[in-house]
């Protein structure tokens, strides 16, 4: 648990944000989830300072951060008069969209899973902000991107080992993305890694722009993080691995894409675990 207690002045909001970011980072949250939480906390703190405590510095604004097994709970507490959240009009109504204020509670409700207000006359308001954490283990899918063939590899649920997972042969990106989307939902995939062809000096090769465009398209379609990872030599390395295993050229050609994907994925997993 982490608690901060600050004088009621908006000059302290950046400090609230810094504390919130630090807490989220300690809790191991993704930047996306951290941003949501801090956005809500800042709105609650702004309200507590400005509306609750009327910017009277001697009144305290408190924020209490808690990490539970499956959720983050932040309480923001003021010493004001209290209010009725139901009486706050929607900021999205046409009449209100250009109003200069009145968006705080709406923002909190949008980015958090639960928002509760408890007002005790004379004792102030406590806003409880809850964010549920997705703790189900997720696999990582790796794609070795080629214009005609996409080699695939899949990690285990703990993200330790990579296994070849076949290939997709497809003439256009849209079909390939639909196929990937199916694989993602059938196998509980939470993240996608795409091999990025860099030259040996580390500069992005020409082929990379095609990969980056594909990665963007895929990210938009799936709504899941898509990261690119240096794939230099992975296809060659894959070929070597298969040669040493005694596979004939024809068979090698059949499996090399997914083996290359597995090599890229393993290097990603290894780098991640040493971080």
């Amino acid at each position: 648990m982490l608690e901060v207690s600050l004088p009621s002045s908006i000059e302290y909001l950046p400090l609230v944000d810094t504390v919130c970011q630090a807490f989220c980072s300690w809790a191991g949250l993704s930047s996306e989830v951290s941003n949501d939480i801090c956005m809500a906390v800042i709105e609650a703190a702004t309200n507590a300072i400005v509306h609750g405590n009327k910017s009277i510095r001697s009144k305290k604004m408190r924020a209490v951060f808690n990490k539970r097994q499956n959720e983050i709970v932040v309480k923001v507490i003021d010493e004001g008069e209290g209010f009725d959240p139901e009486k706050v009009p929607s900021p999205l109504d046409e009449d209100n969209i250009l109003k200069e204020s009145g968006r705080g509670i709406y923002i909190m409700r949008q980015v958090m899973d639960e928002v509760e207000f408890e007002s005790i006359p004379g004792k102030g308001t406590t806003v409880t902000l809850l964010k549920a954490l997705d703790t189900t283990p997720k696999r990582i899918l790796c794609i070795d991107y080629g214009s005609r063939r996409l080699g695939l590899a899949l990690s285990d649920e703990l993200g330790i080992t990579a296994q070849p997972f076949g290939k997709i042969e497809s003439r256009n990106a849209d079909d390939a993305i639909e196929e990937i989307s199916r694989i993602v939902s059938e196998n509980g995939v939470g993240e996608i890694v795409i091999g990025l062809p860099l030259t040996l000096k580390g500069a992005a090769a020409e082929a990379a722009s095609g990969v980056l465009a594909f990665a963007r398209q895929l990210g938009k379609r799936l709504g899941k993080p898509v990261v690119t990872w240096d794939e230099r030599l992975s296809t060659k390395q894959g070929e070597e691995v298969l040669k040493r295993a005694g596979l004939r050229r024809k068979r090698r050609r059949q499996v090399v894409d997914s083996v290359a994907a597995a090599i890229v994925l393993q290097s990603y997993l290894d780098a991640r675990s040493t971080k």
Binding site: L13, M39, T46, K99, E100, S101, G102, R103, G104
Partner: peptide, 9 residues
């Protein structure tokens, strides 16, 4: 970042 008050500005 901005808060809702900043958006108001």
């Amino acid at each position: 970042w901005v808060n809702s008050t900043g958006l108001g500005i």
